[in-house]
Simulated scan of single mutants.
Amino acid sequence: MAYIDGFIIPVGKSDQARNTAFAERMDKHFIDYGATRVVECWGDDVSVGKVTDFNRAVQAAETETVMFSWIEWPDKATRDAAMKAMESNEAMMAEPMPFDGKRMIFGGFEPMVDETTAGTTGYVDGFILPVTPANRSAYLDMAQQAAGTFLKYGALRSSENWGEDVPEGKVTDFKRSVIAEGDENVVFSWVEWPDKATRDAGWEKVMADPDMQPPSEMPFDGQRMFWGGFKPVVDLK
């Protein structure tokens, strides 16, 4: 079964070239260790939320934006072996981070929904939200319906992933980012589009589609979900 590592990273708005070069160097290691795809996306349409948002998640300063990134693995065993092997990769470990690693958020996720069609990704919508285990089935039903609607209106892929290895961080982490309560878990999701224009037009159609009207009782707290639009800067396979 496929496995996903998801990341939210605070980066300087003026440092795109430096962060992209760093990501390209590091991501080649992930591919060498068995990853099937690595995608790094630069914040483009990342709005301020009333309760949560991407910038608050990593305590971003006014001079910073966020990168939304993920690594795809063929299975968790390959991912775990790769992470262990990388610990002894001196060249990789010696790379200085061009961002504050203490505020980077990361975690491992199991795919729940992955609907795709052919095309080259030129824009990404990223989502982070809290869902209780009791509501997982109801959320899955809603996510599967939404995925088909996104693809109908021009999306290339809709991926929904359930938190499996979501560690507690000293400064930031996924659960803190959505103000998780009780036994709530975190869902890491994204929608891929061919370009921003298709995304903008697609969202208008999605929101007007009667099949996308919210259920009478949502399976998660929408006020604590946050999302944003991102431009891919690295896409390795």
Score class of each variant (00 low, 15 high):
121 T>R: 09
146 A>C: 05
140 L>Y: 08
127 F>D: 01
140 L>E: 10
112 M>L: 11
108 G>E: 05
139 Y>C: 07
113 V>E: 03
144 Q>D: 01
158 S>R: 05
111 P>F: 07
108 G>Q: 05
149 T>H: 09
142 M>N: 04
80 D>L: 09
153 Y>N: 00
132 T>S: 15
142 M>H: 11
146 A>M: 14
116 T>N: 01
110 E>P: 00
156 L>W: 03
127 F>W: 09
72 E>W: 07
163 G>C: 01
176 R>Y: 14
163 G>A: 10
92 M>V: 11
165 D>N: 09
103 R>A: 11
136 R>K: 14
83 M>H: 08
168 E>K: 15
159 S>F: 05
130 P>T: 13
169 G>I: 13
148 G>V: 01
127 F>E: 02
113 V>Q: 02
177 S>H: 07
115 E>L: 02
150 F>S: 01
140 L>V: 14
177 S>Q: 07
69 S>W: 00
88 S>V: 06
79 R>N: 10
122 G>F: 04
73 W>T: 12
80 D>N: 09
166 V>D: 04
143 A>F: 07
112 M>R: 06
166 V>R: 01
114 D>G: 03
81 A>H: 12
137 S>V: 15
116 T>R: 05
92 M>T: 12
150 F>N: 00
146 A>Y: 03
178 V>G: 11
83 M>F: 08
164 E>W: 02
114 D>A: 07
91 A>F: 11
124 V>Y: 01
121 T>Y: 01
120 T>I: 06
173 D>R: 09
128 I>P: 07
125 D>C: 05
136 R>F: 12
95 E>T: 12
151 L>T: 01
125 D>K: 09
72 E>R: 13
118 A>Q: 11
73 W>H: 06
178 V>W: 04
180 A>Y: 11
122 G>Q: 02
108 G>C: 08
110 E>G: 04
173 D>K: 14
125 D>Q: 11
171 V>L: 08
82 A>P: 13
135 N>W: 03
174 F>R: 11
153 Y>F: 12
136 R>C: 04
148 G>K: 07
121 T>I: 08
159 S>M: 00
119 G>P: 15
162 W>G: 06
109 F>M: 13
157 R>A: 08
141 D>F: 03
175 K>I: 13
154 G>L: 04
179 I>S: 15
175 K>H: 12
78 T>Y: 04
102 K>M: 08
154 G>W: 02
181 E>W: 02
121 T>W: 00
84 K>Y: 05
178 V>A: 07
177 S>L: 04
133 P>K: 08
156 L>G: 05
128 I>Q: 04
165 D>L: 06
166 V>Q: 03
180 A>C: 10
155 A>E: 02
104 M>Q: 13
87 E>T: 08
180 A>F: 15
